[in-house]
Each structure stands twice: as structure tokens, then as C-alpha cells.
Design a protein around this nucleic acid. Structure first.
Ligand SMILES: [Mn+2]
Ligand SMILES: [Mn+2]
Ligand SMILES: [Zn+2]
Ligand SMILES: [Zn+2]
Lengths: 158, 158
DNA sequence: AATAAAATTGAACTCAGTACAAAATTGAAT
DNA sequence: ATTCAATTTTGTACTGAGTTCAATTTTATT
């Protein structure tokens, strides 16, 4: 899966409209205002947001925005490979602008979804010989480091 | 996670009511008729069924069965560790009587969900140091061996 | 048989996501 | 600049998997 340099600049928190436009064009997407805003939101808020999260964050900026447009845009981004969806054990779908292979950890205490690195060597098993693998999802659940430390500190206070 | 011998006998396709009863009791579940039927179905049909699949398969046998009872039973089984849920990229939840760590492959052609072995060594990464991992899901998507062979044969005929 | 506890049922409801037709916007051609 | 078709956006109604909950039925105990 080809990636352009926009996605690699994880540290950068603001993007120029021109680079956002080019990015969409490169993926065969016509750069409308809404699409640019949603792309910008996804690049600047790497929290694996839901459609609802995106809608709530943009409705002040674009008062006429409809949820249908958010869904339409995300469906288009998914089809064109701009985003991936996370299939965690929760009812709302989350979207990820990072489409490189990586794992997700959901903390059951704070709800945050963390990224972690994985290799696709997991799929090198005899049972999948002759199978064509197009994508992989790796999801883990438990308690994150921060929440573990909080729990530990609370116990010490007692 | 403790497993009793019932789940290991994957080849066996029928179960005596007494062993089903014992199995539920061991997991702290009172063995009602519906629970036994659903357990039996899960053991004898290792297809990762949805609640709907189970309901449709049992409604002839138990004409008064309600979908709520199927959901209630599956929720109870999940809570007591008798089943796991699969959160694949589809809208309906699937249930798996095999709660050992293993991966799932969904064929986008025939829709079948295959099992494959995995190790939990994937989670041995620095990024998860200090994290408590309670469960892992590994899902792959693509084309299964059978469907690949069918596609290959069709091409050769042309 | 009487009684209480637990399981089951069915109807109403929730809510994330979809369908679709009307309205608004865009952009190319004149 | 104006026209006009194509594309995008919007709002409303709808879908359907799953939940809620009170009433009914089943089960186990005395
Ligand atoms: Mn991610
Ligand atoms: Mn399985
Ligand atoms: Zn946490
Ligand atoms: Zn297949």
C-alpha cells in the first residue's frame, strides 16, 4: 500500500490546504471543502475517531454539515485507501488515517486506543497456505500503562 | 483460561446431554433446556455463527424460542467464558465456542471464517511495556484456498 | 400442591448506519 | 459573465442488530 509523505509526518500538527488538496488528488478524490476538513481532522487528531467524533468536532466550523456527509466522505476515503476502519469490540466504527500495518490496544479503563508495531510474519503458517491475504487486523484489550500506574498509586495511598 | 475436554474433541459431532450439563455447571451456568441446545449447537457447528444463525437453526426444534433468549444465553456464555465474540468487519457479531487464542480468516468470496494458529509473542513489543493484556483478536481478510482454486480453474477453461 | 426464584418471552425501543430524492455547489463550455 | 450538466451536500425516513423490561412460564424446593 503506497503512502505519501503526509502520513509520515506524525509529529506535525498543522497542514496547508495545498498539501491536503494534493494528497486527495493523488488518491483520486476531488478536494471539496468538507473532504479537506475531514482529512485535516484525521491528520491532526490521531485518536481513531468515530464518525460522530468527527461530526461533533466540525459542526462549529461548518454549521450546515450533515452526518450523511461525514459518512459519505469516510466511505469514499475507505474505498480510495485514505483510511482504514478498526473493528474493535464496540458498536461504533473508528477510522484510522494510518493505513500501514500496525496493531491496536484498547484500554478498558480510559477508553484510549493505542498503536503498536506488528509484523505480518504472524500469517506465515501452514494453515494459510494457498490463501490470499489482503488485510490484517490485530486488536488487544486490557489496561494501559498510565491507568496501571494510577491504580498502583491509589493502592499505595490506602 | 481453563478448558475442559469437551472443546478439544473437535472431531466429535454429537454430545450427550449429561456431558453438556456438566460442562455448563463447571462454568457456573444452570443447565436449562435452551442453554443446552445452544451449547450443543455451538459445539456441533463450528462455523462462528451469529445470534440469527443460532435462532434460525433452533426455531424448528423449539418453536417458542425467542431471539431475546438467544441473546441472553450468548451474553451469559460470554460472561462465563464459554464463548468468545468475533468482531470482524461485518455488522453482525459472531460467536466462537473455541476460546483458545487463535486467529480468524474471513474469505471475501465464500464468506467462510477459517481458524489459524497464532502465538501471543506478537505482543512482546516495547510499546506495550507496562500494559496489562487481557485478550487479543487477530483477523485476516482475503480469498481462501478453495475459492482461489475455483478462480484458477475458471480461468483455465477460458 | 404451594411457593419463590430463575428463565423465557414478546413488544417496544435504541441508535449507528443507509437510502434516496431534493437542494446547493462546482466547474467546464459558450 | 451566464448557462447547464455533473457532482456534492443535505435532511428525512428508514433499516436492523441488539437492548430493555414487565409479564408469563418453567424449575426447583418445601
Ligand atoms: Mn492506529
Ligand atoms: Mn474460531
Ligand atoms: Zn487507560
Ligand atoms: Zn472462500
Amino acid at each position: 500500500m503506497q503512502q505519501n509523505n503526509l502520513k509520515k509526518e506524525v509529529m506535525k500538527m498543522t497542514y496547508k490546504v495545498e498539501e491536503l488538496k494534493d494528497y486527495l488528488k493523488k488518491h483520486g478524490i476531488r478536494p471539496s471543502t468538507i473532504r479537506l476538513k475531514i482529512l485535516q481532522y484525521l491528520l491532526e487528531n490521531r485518536i481513531h475517531p468515530t464518525a460522530e467524533d468527527i461530526y461533533k468536532s466540525l459542526i462549529n466550523d461548518i454549521p450546515t454539515l450533515s452526518k450523511t456527509s461525514v459518512y459519505n466522505t469516510l466511505d469514499l476515503f475507505l474505498e480510495k485507501g485514505v483510511v482504514n476502519t478498526l473493528s474493535l469490540k464496540e458498536k461504533e466504527l473508528r477510522y484510522d488515517i494510518n493505513t500501514y500495518l500496525h496493531g491496536h490496544f484498547k484500554c478498558e479503563v480510559c477508553g484510549k486506543v493505542y498503536d503498536f508495531p506488528v509484523t505480518d510474519k504472524i500469517l506465515e503458517v501452514n494453515e494459510l497456505e494457498g490463501f490470499t491475504i489482503k488485510s490484517i487486523d490485530i486488536n488487544a484489550y486490557g489496561i494501559c500503562k498510565k491507568c496501571n500506574e494510577k491504580i498502583k498509586n491509589n493502592k499505595e495511598e490506602e
